[in-house]
Nucleic acid binder design. Structure first.
Lengths: 123, 123
DNA sequence: TTAACTGCAAATGGTTTGCTCTGTC
DNA sequence: GACAGAGCAAACCATTTGCAGTTAA
């Protein structure tokens, strides 16, 4: 656990804005000015493999990262591009329904919601 | 509707393998040898905007395309990388649950399942 | 010590785009 | 004749990678 990896993880854990690698890079640069973007990517990938963070790479050119590895879903505002957490428990239900409808063994699923957030609706 | 666009759409509609742009390009090249990859991409994007096809760009470097625009989900085999359709109707249920759990207006969602397909289990 | 990791910069590669040419109405 | 669309090749750009130097254990 180098200071770079630690700073990246802490930066990600201390925000709820589901940032891109570039955003994290700029944040961490305040603390470690000569850190490189390659290091940020390498560590994000490492941490994701370890299950400490989540990668949100659904249908966009930029991946976003989430420091909360526990099961939850995401909502993307189609107006302001913000990403919010959604805590509803569907894991078993969904996997079971897919299991029953197919001859496959379902291990997991990925689910994202899209719409307009409350802030954008009121403006 | 040029012959290129027609060939691309027909190629996509006549397969259930959820191909990549490159696969479609190679298929269509049999019929129109000097078609370019740029044309394939331009037409796939156009057709997706028109709602005639679906783009599957979930967490992978390659996008895949689906010629069936009707609502359905997908299963990705983690072993052989195949993609299969899953027909279960969850649309209203899921959107409603997310609606109730948040202050947001839910318009749509994207859901993908992962696991091992029947062929890979038996080999 | 040494295996893992960093910084830097160049490479990667799927996708997009600019430009010119062509086919269609 | 105008205009949407094609072909070609170059550009894009987020991400990855090779390498030489550095650091944590």
């Amino acid at each position: 656990m180098t200071k770079q990896r630690k700073a990246i993880l802490e930066t990600l854990k201390s925000t709820d804005c589901h940032p891109t690698a570039d955003w994290i890079y700029n944040e961490v640069k305040d603390e470690i000015p000569n850190i490189s973007l390659g290091t940020v990517y390498r560590n994000l990938n490492f941490l994701a493999e370890q299950g400490e963070i989540m990668v949100l790479d659904y249908g966009s050119t930029h991946s976003r990262y989430d420091g909360t590895p526990e099961q939850h879903y995401h909502f993307h505002c189609q107006e302001c591009d913000s990403v919010y957490d959604i805590h509803i428990n569907l894991k078993e239900t969904l996997n079971q329904q897919a299991d029953e409808a197919t001859p496959f063994t379902i291990n997991e699923h990925r689910l994202e919601f899209y719409g307009i957030c409350d802030k954008c609706q009121n403006s």
